[in-house]
Design a protein around this nucleic acid. Sequence first.
DNA 1: CAAATGATTCGCT
DNA 2: GCGAATCATTTGG
Length: 203
Amino acid sequence: MKKLERDFYNRDSITVAKELLGKILISKVGGKTLSAKIVETEAYMGITDKAAHSYGARRTQRVEVMYGNAGFVYVFIIYGMHNCFNVVTNEIDVPQAVLVRALEPLDGLDDMAESRFKKTYGELSKQQKISISNGPGKLCKAFAIDRSFNGEDLCKNQIYIADNKDYDFEIVTSKRIGIDYAEEAKDYPWRFYIKGNPYVSVK
DNA sequence: CAAATGATTCGCT
DNA sequence: GCGAATCATTTGG
């Protein structure tokens, strides 16, 4: 499997969000290898998108990564307790990003189960196996992603995304989740997921 | 089973 | 001070 290069990320968020579906997220932090298929994403289109942190060209310390080069990681804390994992897209000074909302675990299942539930994968209930990574906060916990990942480069070897030849799925397009404050932007069809995948957070 | 609720921290105004 | 790109748990039908 080939690692995705800077060129892949250096396009608009909607295109990257769609094409990230079915790709493989790989983390090699702390001597462990974790991998999972990306099954749900959302595009945040920057200065014109009321749901985006960078709406209206807001440029603060927190949002600074999004103004940088494509292919970097943007992690933020939401509701005081959950991390959200984003991929920075598009040109420098165009503050766009893609939120990864759900993953299908592939390798390192025991490590993910340990991070999430303090159990081995075999000890999990059927319900827990699904909920191990079927949401933005949950997948961060499974991958042990926190704010120390903010600003990491996906074109290096600590954490990266690999291409996948398995393109046998349909993409469903729908409205984004949890952004009721965003007025008309809350209805934009900028959420994408793999049809029929059990790990999708909201069907 | 659906709906309501509490948790808890930090960046921004 | 306010409120957020969420989640787990509890409550009620």
